[in-house]
Write a protein that binds this DNA or RNA. Structure first.
Lengths: 169, 169
DNA sequence: GAGCTATGGTTGAGGAATCAACCATTTATG
DNA sequence: CATAAATGGTTGATTCCTCAACCATAGCTC
């Protein structure tokens, strides 16, 4: 049974603050750099990364959502912008008339290939290089433990589309 | 000299993904719970926490900004909303006519006192309780290392108000 | 195969954070 | 002391994300 005081003790508080703050600041810094020297948003980058990573340059929107852990509406909005900039295209999915295939266009591939080196470099400088291999493993282990726990949360997952709530009548 | 390949190796990639993803998911989950059972945003909560924590129930906006690592404009917008909800008040600062004192109102104190127990509880369940004391110390140490490094970044800090850029003419 | 329900996706409104521009006051410089 | 620069805050536009509502197609079940 875990301890249950109303507040965090100093050790707990320190860990919690450091973790939270570090993650956030890292995120801010990396997005800023990414945008600055490639014109891509983190969101843009992640989409292109999945699309270009999976060796097939097209995939149904639903799969992209799952891969990114995004809501479908977010992807939809995001895609619209990227399409206008010529990075990707939409195509009807022959296997399912409701579905849409998101296709990586040459410009999109070029965009991420241009952006990646500098971005990876920043991830190294601001994260990887600060830790020993053993420390990296520790971070991975602890992070994954938290993720596993969150995944089990009853209320935790799923943006709960009103459509998708369990039958109410 | 750190290794410099164009991509992250599997160990690095695992650590980076786990860290990033865990931080984000944790954040999402905690905000959702907080809002759900107290009606407060994370932003609301943080403001109230600083204000109620420092034993003096009022402080200049500038100090609040610093304590939160927020931009001044963000605080300004945030404060407007909280003022309308009667959680805090603004008062002129007798020491500096440009400045504004942000004051914690009774309703604000009540709000965070009501919200805190459940919130702390969630932080425990989803973070603290997953780790041993030694692991918590490790997380604190590693997180702080990252923060220190980010703080030194030449371009990293400060939203660079155009006003505040080094003299340009 | 008619009528549910579930699924894939789009849209529009609203909230939250950022950015640029601005105003007022204070401090530094000559 | 007059003026320039720096500081504390506010505001409005913009972008990004979430939510709720919606449409169309697919899959069941009878």
């Amino acid at each position: 049974m875990p301890t249950e005081p109303r507040w965090l003790n100093p050790r707990e508080d320190r860990a919690w603050r450091a973790f939270k703050h570090a993650g956030h600041q890292l995120d801010v810094s990396l997005s800023r750099h990414l945008l600055q020297d490639s014109g891509l948003t983190q969101a843009d980058y992640e989409v292109l990364a999945v699309l270009s990573g999976n060796s097939i340059d097209r995939m149904p929107a639903r799969e992209l959502c799952a891969a990114l852990s995004w809501e479908k509406s977010r992807l939809s909005h995001q895609i619209r912008g990227m399409q206008q900039r010529g990075l990707i295209a939409r195509e009807p999915n022959p296997d399912d008339a409701r579905s849409v295939l998101i296709c990586l266009l040459p410009a999109g591939r070029r965009a991420i290939e241009d952006a990646a080196p500098a971005h990876v470099e920043h991830v190294r400088r601001q994260f990887i290089d600060l830790f020993t291999p053993a420390e990296l493993d520790t971070l991975a282990t602890l992070g994954e433990r938290a993720l596993r726990h969150l995944a089990d949360e009853p209320f935790g997952e799923g943006p709960l589309d009103p459509d998708e709530t369990p039958a109410q009548r």
